[in-house]
Amino acid sequence: MGGSSMGLPSTAWTCTVLPTCCRSLPQPRDAAQDLLQEVKQMPTDTDDSVGRDRATAADLSSYVLVVASLYIGFGFLWYYSAKEKLFDQDGEMPPPLKERFDGSFLDTVPGLDTAWLLLGIVEAVVFLVVVASLLAGEFLPHRRKPLLLNFLALSMLTFAGMLFAESMVGEFESVFQLFTYLAGTALLIVLVLLMPPYRDRRWLASLSLR
């Protein structure tokens, strides 16, 4: 007989058939690996595509806030400054400021009232460049921003002129304040050059991932 006296399979069958059957069944380790692989392939909130969408939304909102701040901040700053000097004061320096600059270089060349008038004209020019930048649509992400960069550069020049005048009369507290305006405007120029269209639309995300 091919089997044993107790009806059990023979040794040869046990050694050949049983291992074959066992090999056809999924092993616990392989099943766990397959399950882990499926979990990894499931879409989650941290998926790359979702991350890219969130980065794009963050970049766009940051761009809008930065550009709006530039136009609102510098636009109203130079509008009211120019309006005060050219229209409210008719190009004449207020008496307290005349006392401060009395006997200074500005009192001789070009004269205090003339210097005040010139400062108002420069501020009005900067404001007009701000308006021209808006009308040219430079606030749009795909538009290059030469006028925006120019009104920032003109703002730096205006701050530098006021800094020079305050330095002559020893108003060092005002000098320090104007210097911070000057340096801050320079940083804003760098910031504009880091945004679209000079960089990728995901400009903020690309900076944060470096």
Rank of each mutant, 00 (worst) to 15 (best):
L70S: 02
T114V: 14
M6Y: 10
L8W: 13
L207D: 03
A183V: 15
P19K: 03
L209G: 03
S5D: 14
P197N: 07
I72S: 11
V190G: 02
L148M: 14
F76E: 15
G73I: 00
C21D: 08
F105I: 06
M93E: 06
F176A: 14
D53T: 09
D45T: 09
L193D: 08
L118D: 12
P43R: 12
L163Q: 13
L70C: 09
L106Q: 07
D90R: 12
F179Q: 08
L188P: 05
V66M: 08
E166V: 10
F151P: 02
L147Y: 01
I72R: 12
V50N: 12
L86A: 01
R202K: 13
F105R: 09
E166A: 08
S206K: 08
A186C: 07
D107M: 03
G3P: 03
Y181V: 00
P141T: 01
R143N: 12
M156I: 07
T16R: 11
A31S: 15
L119N: 15
M42C: 11
M168N: 10
V64G: 00
P197F: 11
L8N: 15
V190Y: 07
V190P: 00
V192R: 05
R210H: 09
S133N: 01
S81Q: 08
P141D: 04
S104Y: 07
G3I: 09
L204A: 09
T180L: 14
D102V: 00
A82T: 00
C22E: 14
D59K: 02
A68W: 07
T11H: 11
E123F: 06
G184R: 10
D88N: 14
R144Y: 13
G7W: 04
L36C: 06
D47P: 08
K40D: 03
L65G: 02
L182C: 09
L60K: 11
Y181I: 00
V175S: 05
S61F: 01
P110L: 06
M1Q: 03
A165K: 05
P19L: 02
K83H: 10
L157E: 05
P141F: 02
L36R: 13
F105A: 07
M195D: 08
G184E: 15
L163N: 08
L8K: 15
L182R: 04
H142C: 04
S49H: 07
L204N: 04
L193V: 03
L70M: 12
D200V: 02
P95C: 07
G184T: 10
E123N: 09
L118F: 13
